[in-house]
């Protein structure tokens, strides 16, 4: 077949291809690609979110953002929050899955209870946790004092507010990680463990040499998902701390919200959003690159 005919055939089939692709492409364009492009455009303007007109201001928003210490503080909080939720969620999710992978009486109910925070709205969860964290009479402090420890101020103090939000986020996503790990653990071929038993791999050795590599694709998937979820965390911060006290829980996303909807500086807010997109893409790329060394398909 000549190149010209080949090209013609491709060209002929374009309407058919579009017909199949459009149902997926239209929502993608309307709700994702266009808003992203629009956000990038707005980040070069001085729009105040209310006025019908605005001017292009070049990279002014970015320059003032990078000169603003509040931005670096929020970036740092974002990284702390992401790391603080990512590792415990993955590790504890795996531990729970290992404990519950063997069916025993009540294990089904236990799995459901651990998973249930994932399907409960974050706002509802956060309201309940705000009661738990109450300085006077909250369950958290009741437990601490009953264990002979001194009570904490939790969300009321800038020292512990971030920890408090992290705990809520881990608690919420733990069940999700566990469910994925449960399924991954069940899929590890029994023969691998048997071969390992004959080779002399037991206990910790078996876990490190056989289990962990076998479930590495799940670990990778959960790492990406948990990271993205952490970067996008908003509800729990809004309900529990509103970014405070004194900005101690202000992440980039929360800063975006405050800039855009409290301070009516949509130009700078969208600049923060663009930085967040770059951060997410950058972290994901690093993970994909590093994953070549530890993920086995």
């Amino acid at each position: 077949m000549s190149a010209k005919r080949k090209y013609k055939r491709r060209y002929d089939s374009l309407p058919t291809v579009l017909l199949f692709v459009l149902p997926a492409l239209i929502p993608l364009i309307v709700f994702w690609i266009y808003p992203i492009l629009r956000t990038i455009y707005l980040s070069f303007t001085n729009w105040d979110y209310i006025s019908p007109t605005y001017k292009l201001v070049g990279i002014k928003n970015y320059l003032s953002l990078f000169r603003n210490p509040r931005f670096y503080e929020a970036l740092w909080h974002t990284l702390v929050f992401t790391a603080g939720t990512l590792f415990p969620t993955i590790i504890l999710g795996l531990v729970l899955a290992l404990l519950l992978v063997k069916n025993f009486r009540g294990s089904g109910i236990l799995k459901f209870i651990i998973f249930s925070p994932w399907i409960t709205p974050t706002v509802a969860i956060s309201i309940v946790w705000s009661w738990i964290y109450k300085t006077d009479g909250g369950i958290a402090n009741t437990i601490l004092t009953s264990l002979g420890m001194s009570p904490l101020k939790w969300i009321a103090s800038s020292d512990t507010a971030m920890l408090s939000v992290i705990i809520v986020t881990i608690w919420k996503s733990l069940g999700y990680a566990m469910i994925f790990y449960l399924s991954a653990l069940e899929k590890v071929p029994g023969e691998l463990y048997e071969a390992g038993a004959l080779d002399g791999a037991h206990g910790w050795r078996q876990f490190v040499d056989i289990t962990l590599p076998s479930i590495s694709p799940t670990t990778f998937f959960l790492t990406i998902i948990t990271m993205v979820n952490s970067l996008q965390a908003y509800d729990q911060i809004q309900v529990l701390t509103q970014g405070g006290p004194s900005g101690s829980t202000r992440t980039l996303l929360y800063m975006y919200y405050q800039l855009g909807f409290n301070e009516f500086n949509m130009g700078q807010a969208t600049a923060v959003a663009v930085v967040m997109i770059l951060l997410t893409v950058g972290l994901s790329l690093i993970q994909f690159k590093v994953s070549e060394k530890w993920v086995y398909y």
């Binding site: 023969e191 691998l192 071969a195 040499d209 076998s214």
Partner: peptide, 20 residues
């Protein structure tokens, strides 16, 4: 006696090679 102490080797139907 545990499998590894029996000094016996086995070849499995699906090979059971460590994929990683």
């Amino acid at each position: 006696v545990s499998p590894q102490d029996r000094d016996i080797a086995m070849v499995f139907q699906n090979y059971a090679l460590y994929p990683h």
